[in-house]
Structures are given as structure tokens and as C-alpha cells.
């Protein structure tokens, strides 16, 4: 992506020599806007990385020196292992389950014509329209009511967390898979039927393989949406098990030292590596 911007900047440079004034200023404006956009995205990240090597115990500027020792103390971050583990576990389970629901649902929505299709579409996308805080609070009240009546402990369990995250990941899976399916040439599936493949076989051997890019993109979005969710999750955790973003939030309530910055850098690096790994199999620039 950065390389592409470099090419564009180069392009505008050579245009400056032969282009007329209006064209030149238009290109300069586009270039400037892109720089602003890149800065907006990268400066907070770079600042966090910068802070994570401050030597002082409290973040002050300018720092008295630099050290990598905070990275050695990651294990001292309260609940680092438990929070990261819970987040990864919940995100992975929510992703898998939302794929199991979302992929068949999107195939039905795009390829079949049935009564209530419009309703199902709206239903599957509706959690996107409700603020996370509202969903979280609503679920919490519901869980407490059910707990009181059934005397069965629900709040704070991983299962409940996974089900709740399913609410916010499934709309993304449906949206991305529907978009993917709509742009697939329907006659390819007809060709399979024409060659003797019954409907189930067409689905398995042609439709699903062709959806691969959409499914990977959907999984990616679902995982990230679940992994970084705070506002809904806040209502559903118990003191014992918290998710990673919440552990960072709780830490920041009492302290602001370079350790939290290094924790965030490590988390960003993990996600970035995950994206790079997936990019080797499916070109992300094509699916997102």
C-alpha cells in the first residue's frame, strides 16, 4: 500500500513538469490529503511505539532516556496472559460460529427466493444499527433476570461472551459474503449444473470455493471486531475473566507508564502479523 502511494507521488511529480496549472494543483491537493490521511492513521501508532521505549516510570516529555526493558516486563502487566487468552479464545469462537451462521445465510439470501427474505436480511444486519453499549446493557439486564429465575450462573461466563460477540460479528460476515456472492457470475454455477452436478455438489465444489476470498475477509473482520470490542463487553465480563482491551482500559485508570504502551505495541504486532500471514493466501487488497 505504501509502495502504491509512492508511485502516485512520483506520478504527480512527473505530471508537474508537463501538466498545466490546474492539473498540477489538483494533484498536489490529492497528494496533501493523502499525506494527512496517512498521518492520521500512523501517528498514534508511532507515538505509542515511541512511548514504549521511554525510560521513566511515568510518561513525561521529553523522556530522560530510552530503554527496551518494558518489553521484558510484559508478564508483569496485570492479567496479561489471561486477558489475551480470553480475547483470542472468544474472538476465534465467535468468528467460527458467525461463519457457520453467516455463510449459509448469505448464500440463501442471494441465491434463493423465499418468503421473509427481506426480513431475514434486515434481522441479520440489525445489530450494526444498535450502539454496543445498548446491546451490552440489554444483554446484561436479560442475563440477570434469567439468572434470578433459573438460579443458573450466566454472567461472566465465556459462553455468554461468545454468544454476545456473535451478535456483532455475524452482520459483518453476512455483509461481506453477500457482497462477494453478488459479484460472482451466476452462470458458473449453471455451468456446473449443466455438467451434471446436483445442487449440493454445485454448492460444495463451485460456490464455496469461489467465495473463498469473501469468507477469509469475513473471518478477518469478525475476528478483529470481536477482539477489539470494549463497549458491549464491559457489561458482560466478571472480575475474574476480562478481555484484553478491557485489561488495558483498567490499567490506564490507575497508571500511565510505558508498560501499557509496549503491551499495545505487542498486540498491534500480533494483528499485523496475522494480516500478513493471511495476505499470503488471499490478497487482502482484493477482498476489503
Amino acid at each position: 500500500m505504501l509502495k502504491g502511494i509512492g508511485d502516485l507521488a512520483e506520478g504527480s511529480g512527473s505530471a508537474a513538469i508537463r501538466g498545466n496549472g490546474a492539473q498540477l494543483s489538483a494533484r498536489l491537493l490529492v497528494g496533501a490529503l493523502m499525506l494527512v490521511a496517512i498521518a492520521l492513521m500512523t501517528v498514534p501508532l508511532l507515538m505509542t511505539a515511541y512511548m514504549s521505549v521511554f525510560a521513566d516510570g511515568v510518561v513525561t516529555f521529553p523522556p530522560s532516556g530510552y530503554t527496551l526493558s518494558w518489553y521484558g516486563k510484559l508478564a508483569e502487566f496485570p492479567k496479561f496472559g489471561q486477558a489475551l487468552g480470553t480475547s483470542l479464545k472468544v474472538a476465534a469462537a465467535a468468528t467460527l460460529l458467525s461463519l457457520l451462521i453467516g455463510v449459509p445465510a448469505s448464500i440463501a439470501l442471494v441465491r434463493l427466493n423465499f418468503v421473509g427474505r427481506g426480513f431475514l436480511n434486515v434481522l441479520l444486519l440489525s445489530p450494526l444499527t444498535v450502539p454496543g453499549v445498548v446491546i451490552g446493557l440489554g444483554l446484561y439486564v436479560l442475563l440477570v433476570e434469567v439468572e434470578i429465575r433459573s438460579e443458573f450462573p450466566l454472567t461472566g461466563s465465556d459462553g455468554v461472551l461468545i454468544l454476545a460477540h456473535l451478535l456483532i460479528t455475524t452482520p459483518w460476515v453476512v455483509r461481506l459474503c453477500v457482497a462477494n456472492l453478488m459479484q460472482l457470475d451466476r452462470s458458473i454455477e449453471e455451468a456446473a449444473a449443466n455438467l451434471g452436478a446436483p445442487p449440493g455438489r454445485v454448492l460444495w465444489s463451485v460456490t464455496l470455493p469461489m467465495m473463498r476470498q469473501g469468507i477469509v475477509a469475513a473471518a478477518l473482520f469478525a475476528f478483529i471486531v470481536s477482539f477489539e470490542n470494549i463497549e458491549m463487553t464491559l457489561f458482560l465480563i466478571s472480575p475474574g475473566t476480562i478481555t484484553f482491551p478491557i485489561s488495558v482500559l483498567q490499567y490506564l485508570e490507575y497508571r500511565f507508564d510505558p508498560l501499557v504502551a509496549s503491551v499495545v505495541v505487542v498486540q498491534t504486532a500480533v494483528i499485523a502479523l496475522l494480516l500478513l500471514a493471511i495476505d499470503r493466501y488471499v490478497k487482502l487488497s482484493k477482498v476489503v
Binding site: 449453471e190 455451468a191 449444473a193 449443466n194 451434471g196 446436483p198 445442487p199
Partner: peptide, 19 residues
């Protein structure tokens, strides 16, 4: 159904299996 008709069709878009 189409899969029992044993017809061979060449589509305008060719409709080859991309994968």
C-alpha cells in the same frame, strides 16, 4: 433438472471455474 439433461452448454461469459 438441468443436471440430468446431459446437455453441453457454452456460455457467453464462458463461465469457467476460476478455482
Amino acid at each position: 433438472p438441468p443436471y440430468r439433461r446431459e446437455m453441453g452448454m457454452v456460455f457467453q461469459s464462458y463461465a469457467l471455474f476460476p478455482h
